[in-house]
Nucleic acid binder design. Structure first.
Lengths: 202, 202
DNA sequence: TCCTGTCGAGCGAAAGTAACAGGAAATCTA
DNA sequence: TAGATTTCCTGTTACTTTCGCTCGACAGGA
């Protein structure tokens, strides 16, 4: 049938926007259905309910995310640790920017304390953390830093990777208007890399 | 009366914890009442409903926050710009750490797009942003940095001020266990200040 | 005919809130 | 000081709305 998945896509798109604006619990399936201009029961039909829709969206997001990260690490296998880290940072920021609303929403939702969040943590975030951590520590190799100092620097790095998607409210004027998304990615990544150069050069 | 405001305090405390764990929309007034061991209608009685409770908590949080920030800036009036900024950073992190759950919750809720958030933005966040921005730019005085570079550095700084309260899930084991809160504040602030020293020394 | 997708109606549960009664404490009055 | 009155707080109950979800009916292409 021609219109297969047409409603499904409309639901996903509407849900992304609404979850981003009002949060998961702040959005009703009727809101979604209305915005997507489909029937209420479509959500249950396609995703097994509201929770299923959430799981579908988040899972798809992280599957693709980790795919891109792993590909980046594979391609840069033979390069220097710092070069690898630089390209990893670029890959991550670029992906997040390409799915801006979903990134902001998921980032927010992950700060909650629920069964779902814990599941996502062990399934995806553990992997993500492993990739970033090991790549970063490789780049720090040889630097003699006191014990937990590295962990604080890692926290700093991870913070830089999420900051634009937490403080998006302050930056949306800029990112949408004066700057295009690509320009933002380029400039922001450059800012991180400048910090990185300082850190590994200690 | 002896037990005056006793229930009120219990409600605030319970709400802080639950909002932190499950979010504002994810928490019902019955949840709060049950945890606080008070009657359901107490929330309406003391705070004019659930929304009023939110407004009360957030307002009280930011009033005290800005008070501490302004006091810090006043005390350090005659010191160097970098010294001022260092102490401002310490003040901010210390306050946030002292109200950990509320900080995490408010930080999360502010990423939503609602009338309430916009009100808080113009009332408090604009001030906060002004203080941090002007202090930071004073410290950068004389450095010749291309146009928007300073804004990206400011974004980086502001990110560092919120990161621990976004990624608290990854750090709670550490902050609660091995390290006490004071140690975390000291060490994390030191990490930011090291970055700062690099930036202003460019 | 079956299968897939769409639609509206409606169910039970839970949400937020209002209404009211009871009672303890505080204040007033004689 | 004793009694009366007011004020403040708590508990019960019930109301209205909205929630997520299911169901049966219906349409059209395979």
């Amino acid at each position: 049938m021609m219109k297969k998945n047409l409603s499904k896509q409309k639901v996903i798109h509407a849900a992304s926007t609404l979850f981003f604006q009002k949060g998961f619990h702040g959005t009703s399936v009727r809101d979604i259905a209305e915005k997507a201009k489909v029937n209420v029961s479509s959500v249950s039909y396609y995703f097994n309910g509201k929770q299923g829709l959430l799981e579908y969206a988040v899972t798809a997001y992280y599957e693709e995310y980790l795919e891109k990260v792993e590909e980046c690490l594979k391609v840069t296998e033979n390069q220097s640790a710092i070069e690898r880290l630089n390209k990893l940072i670029f890959t991550i920021i670029q992906y997040k920017q390409s799915k801006l609303q979903l990134t902001c929403f998921i980032q927010r939702e992950l700060t909650l304390d629920s069964i779902f969040v814990r599941e996502m943590t062990v399934t995806y975030l553990a992997k993500e953390n492993y990739y970033i951590r090991s790549t970063f520590f490789s780049a720090l190799e040889g630097k003699k830093l006191p014990g937990d100092q590295k962990d604080y620097l890692l926290l700093q790095l991870k913070g830089m990777l999420i900051t634009p998607y937490i403080l998006h409210n302050e930056w949306k004027d800029r990112v949408i208007g004066e700057y295009s998304r690509e320009v933002f990615v380029k400039k922001y990544v450059a800012t991180i890399q400048k910090w990185l150069k300082f850190i590994v050069g200690i």
